[in-house]
Design a protein around this nucleic acid. Structure first.
Lengths: 148, 148
DNA sequence: TAACAATTATTGTATATACAAATGTATAAA
DNA sequence: TTTATACATTTGTATATACAATAATTGTTA
């Protein structure tokens, strides 16, 4: 991921601008890679993330607020995202009886199985994306990102 | 930007998954920050990037292909993006006389002036986003991102 | 308790984006 | 010259997303 080459500029860019552009380029690459890795499963990255959040609940249903809080990129319309997962029978939704404003969303057996298949592909994709890094460099990168 | 806190998981995440999530979180933050910084100018980040590309041409008009190649996040419909900049009188478009399939797009005086104002805001935003970093750490981060 | 405010989710609408098909132009081949 | 192919952009369409408005329920307070 060579910034200067990519944006084809002759003049040297200030280090901060360069960093921001660099991060954007990296993210674009990551998104494209993950997107195509998930393609065979006919699921979007956002939908995949919701499934993982629900699995993390270990059987406890989550309401929309909880999902929203834990989403990496927040969605204004998690409702419709969940709708799509329901169509696939990956999750189910029911009204919370304690507080009927809330809904309880949980992952189904079918969803768990599908997610398990996707996990393998995702792990593989992550390794491929980060194949240029040593363990030490990964730690370094995370420490630096932590400052942002 | 604390990954574990943000995604509220108890179990420790594999370093590669963590890195990918970390990068996504960082990018979300950057996008939100830049988006709100550009809000007063009523321009999207993509539109801003096109303006910068056109200024980089130093008077030489660019065709759509050139713009597309240099875009950080590639767009399938640069046509419509340029349309919006034309409405604002920031750029102009004319058919290339040498090859009438091509169009020539260039930034106007109004566009240059507007961009100049935005530059100040962007520099400020970049500094704020990266205020936790020393010069040395910025260099380090760029070197690491280069591996991706 | 009635009125009002706060919470939670859903829906409507406008814009953004991805992908494919269509348009118009230029070049090459028969 | 006609046909085919490649090129550069535009348009159509479906989906995604952001933001605001609405609906339903619960909590608060006068």
């Amino acid at each position: 991921m060579n910034v200067e080459a990519k944006i084809k500029t002759d003049k040297s860019i200030p280090i901060r601008s360069k960093t921001i552009i660099h991060l954007s380029l990296v993210q674009t690459k990551i998104n494209e890679t993950i997107h195509s890795a998930l393609k065979p499963f006919d699921i979007s990255l956002q939908q995949f993330n919701v499934l993982r959040i629900l699995r993390g609940q270990k059987g406890v249903p989550a309401n929309l607020n909880t999902i929203n809080e834990r989403m990496v990129t927040k969605m204004s319309n998690t409702t419709r995202l969940v709708d799509k997962l329901i169509i696939k029978d990956f999750v189910a939704r029911q009204i919370c009886q304690k507080n009927r404003r809330k809904v309880e969303i949980f992952i189904t057996e079918i969803g768990l199985e599908a997610l398990h298949e996707m996990d393998a592909v995702m792990t593989q994709t992550e390794h491929k994306l980060l194949e240029g890094f040593t363990e030490n460099e990964l730690t370094q990168l995370n420490e630096l990102l932590h400052k942002l």
